[in-house]
Computed example of a mutant assay.
Amino acid sequence: MHNIFSDSNQIGTVSGFSELVHTDFKGERNALCWYRNLDGDFNEIVAKLKIKENITEVYPKDLLALQLSEKGNIAREIILNDLRLLTDFGASPALNLLKCYERDDEFDFISTDVYSFHVDRSPIATDTFLCTYHGAASDIISNAQAKQKILIPEIRNKLAALHDGPSEEFEDFLKENYFDLHYQALPHAVPVNLGLGHLWRLAVDHPQQQVLPCIHRAPIENKGEYRLLLIC
């Protein structure tokens, strides 16, 4: 199967949900994509949902309450099926209608919000699943094209100045404040946009992980447009 992601060593492509969840990450591969060209009118769903705050969780009952056209109904069935597949697998998917995420502007030299390239971390073996149905889509970047921000000398020195405890506790300070999860793209880096409709599985930093965690970021939203995102 050839598609726009097939030529990347970082990304494996699969043709169905079972293959998505049962294919192992290995080597440089820390992202798997169930590549799909979805039919249906997802814009109609977004237009009929009510956004209550910057991030509004949408439940199956909210989708089922919408009066939709034939194309809108196709889109709804796709979303409900994705939620069902992930729930049956044992994941806890959430469907979010997004205006924007909260920005972190506490420090001018390092950002720890989701618009910054970052990895996810968990104390247990798990993966991140996501699919953007409408709006701007997330980016990933290969680990070779990014550097952990806490290893950049000028950032590390400023973080050390913030830390008022013993030097042997500095690494714990970095981890407790999630500074160690964030990355700076190198000048030659070429991020990969995850596109619309594809269901992704990204490697997470956890104790049993055999590969490097997948570095990713949320996109800057398109002006006047909400995102519809499945994530878990």
Rank of each mutant, 00 (worst) to 15 (best):
Q145V: 03
F17Y: 05
L64W: 01
N30E: 08
S8H: 11
W200E: 06
C232H: 11
S122E: 08
P153A: 04
G40W: 05
A65S: 15
R227N: 08
A31H: 05
G72K: 04
L196R: 11
A31G: 11
R76I: 05
L63Y: 06
I150V: 15
S8P: 01
D120T: 07
P219Q: 08
Y133G: 02
E77C: 06
T13G: 00
L159G: 02
S6D: 10
D113R: 03
C33E: 04
S8R: 04
L151C: 09
T126G: 02
H2W: 13
Q209P: 00
H2Q: 15
D39W: 00
K71N: 12
S69M: 09
I110T: 06
E106A: 10
S92F: 12
H188G: 01
L66S: 11
L38K: 09
S116P: 01
L97P: 08
N81K: 15
I78E: 04
K175W: 00
H206E: 14
I4C: 11
I215L: 07
A189Q: 06
D172I: 07
T56L: 08
V119N: 06
H182N: 10
F170D: 05
L162T: 12
S18P: 00
L194K: 15
Y59W: 14
H182Y: 07
S18F: 00
K61D: 10
I155Y: 06
V119K: 06
P153S: 03
Y183P: 03
R227S: 05
Y226Q: 15
C100H: 15
V192K: 07
R217W: 09
H22C: 14
D7Y: 05
L63K: 02
C33M: 09
D127S: 12
F179I: 06
D180C: 04
S111F: 10
F129P: 00
A203N: 08
H206I: 03
E106W: 00
H22S: 15
F129D: 09
E176T: 05
L196D: 06
T87K: 12
L174A: 07
I78G: 00
N54C: 02
K175Y: 08
T128Y: 11
D82Q: 12
H118M: 02
E57S: 13
F42Y: 12
E57N: 12
H118S: 03
S92Y: 15
R76N: 08
P207W: 12
L230F: 05
P153L: 01
G90A: 13
T132I: 07
R103G: 09
I51Y: 05
L151R: 14
A160G: 02
L230K: 05
E102Q: 14
Q148H: 01
D39H: 10
K223A: 13
E77R: 11
